[in-house]
Computed example of a mutant assay.
Amino acid sequence: MKMKNWLIGISALGVVGGGAYYFTPAVQENSIVKSEKIKEDKFDELKEAKIEILDTSAFLDKNIEKWFDKNKGTKGESRYYDNTYTYVLVSGGEKANDNDIIWLDGVRKINDKLVIGYEMKDGKEFGVKTKEGQVPTLLIRTKGEYTEVKGIVVEKKEVKPDAPKVTTKKSEVVDEDVEKSDKEPDVEDKEKVKEKVKEEKKNKKEEAN
């Protein structure tokens, strides 16, 4: 994917954003909003929303703090609008496992709707350990009003490992008989052959006598 992933196990603060704007047809919009999962390439085609990931250890706005405290134990997504920003709270719920964390794939927007790509993961996979009994939450905000928020799982592309390259070396062992047959005998070899033939003839004559 084009943007980074976030593992949300504790409070954090950050800003992300970018992307090109275009209007999403109603048919595609309804299809995505009704789905529980979306392919990674389809998710990347949507306009990326510029968001802030907010620190929930302290709040400057008491109304947002009350809304957060009221909804943080409820699994799923909650929305709040303060006439300037739309706030989205993502929660693993009170029944989440102790070491659950939120894996954020990004936030996209479809007209007046926000699509939050995320899923719950076991923090042990990433060497993250959370406090016992802590509810995993993620609080983000984006400028403007969005009337609906949709949480969705982004299905990643399967990356197949490259097949190992098999290299074969030509045998360095040469058949001695073939090697000998391919070579022309030199002068010295010819003389030896002649001497051997003469000696054999001589031996035969002696045997005959």
Rank of each mutant, 00 (worst) to 15 (best):
F59I: 05
V135P: 05
G151R: 08
E158C: 01
E148D: 10
R141L: 11
M120G: 04
E184C: 00
Y21N: 09
T84P: 00
E40Q: 11
V159R: 13
E94N: 13
G106K: 04
V159G: 01
D112W: 07
E184G: 00
K34R: 02
K66F: 01
D82C: 06
S11M: 05
N99D: 15
D105I: 00
D98V: 01
V27G: 01
K47P: 02
D122C: 05
E145H: 15
N5L: 10
T137H: 07
S181G: 07
G19P: 08
K2G: 04
E158G: 02
G123F: 09
K124W: 05
Q28V: 12
E148K: 11
D122Y: 05
I152F: 06
G18T: 12
K204D: 11
E148F: 09
T147D: 10
V149A: 15
Q134L: 12
G18L: 04
L89G: 02
K131R: 13
P136C: 09
E132R: 12
G127Y: 14
Y21L: 13
V197M: 06
N111T: 11
K192Y: 06
K39E: 14
K198Q: 13
I38V: 11
L89I: 07
I101Y: 08
K50L: 06
G117A: 11
N30K: 14
V159Y: 01
F68I: 03
I38E: 00
E132N: 12
E172N: 10
K129N: 09
A26F: 08
K169L: 04
V107N: 04
K2R: 13
L138F: 09
K169V: 14
V178H: 05
D189R: 01
N5K: 15
T84I: 09
K160R: 13
P185A: 00
I10P: 02
F126H: 13
E65W: 03
T142S: 12
E36H: 07
E200Y: 06
K170W: 04
D98I: 08
Y87N: 05
I140P: 10
T137L: 06
T56N: 03
